[in-house]
């Protein structure tokens, strides 16, 4: 992985909530163009390595004092992956909507909204889930052995339990 970067998690949260709200609105109002709009912003976000709707936070919510920054030293790759994955599914969903495959299209749009909601409100990370199970299945490249001499389940150089 690359170096740690200062990442504002509030911007990510606002972007995820925007995706949920707009996708829901797109479905309820039967406006596929709204789903396309979400797709475009998510694609741009993935390409520019920034939350697709982060501008809502930067230009409106934060200046108005409606949202506070929550900056953490974090790796950008997982966020890049989840936005890229979401954008890919949205592209497929949008294509489905415009090729008269409505059920397929709206299902994918709904899937992106559901995963964004689970991430925003439940902390659930699809990439973490996939990575974890690929590791459990023993696929090469998805596991990391503890340093030599470390008892399984224990942290290297320390006890399993943190004693204070």
């Amino acid at each position: 992985m690359d170096e740690l970067e200062s990442i504002d998690h509030t911007a990510i949260f606002v972007s995820q909530v925007s995706v949920v709200v707009l996708n829901l609105l797109a479905f309820v109002l039967d406006q596929p163009w709204l789903a396309v709009l979400v797709t475009i912003f998510m694609l741009l976000g993935a390409l520019l390595d920034t939350p697709g709707f982060g501008w809502v936070y930067r230009l409106a919510l934060r200046p108005l004092g409606l949202a506070r920054p929550h900056v953490l030293a974090d790796y950008p790759e997982p966020h890049r992956f989840s936005q890229g994955f979401g954008a890919t599914v949205m592209v497929a969903g949008s294509l489905g909507l415009f090729l008269q495959a409505s059920l397929f299209g709206w299902t994918l749009v709904g899937l992106v909204a559901a995963l964004a909601a689970l991430n925003a409100f439940g902390g659930f990370c699809l990439g973490c889930f996939v990575y974890y199970w690929l590791g459990r299945l023993g696929l090469p490249g998805f596991t990391r052995r503890p340093p030599a001499g470390t008892f399984p389940g224990r942290r290297p150089g320390g006890a399993l339990a943190d004693e204070h």
Binding site: C128, G153, L160, D162
Partner: peptide, 30 residues
């Protein structure tokens, strides 16, 4: 291999441990 475990979850638990001190025990399992 879980980056959010290291970058987000562990600091959150550490902050809690600093706040609660000996009243809280933390057991991390790989």
């Amino acid at each position: 291999t879980c980056s959010s475990c290291r970058t987000v979850q562990r600091p959150a638990i550490e902050a809690l441990r600093e706040c609660l001190g000996g009243a809280l025990q933390v057991l991390e399992v790989d």
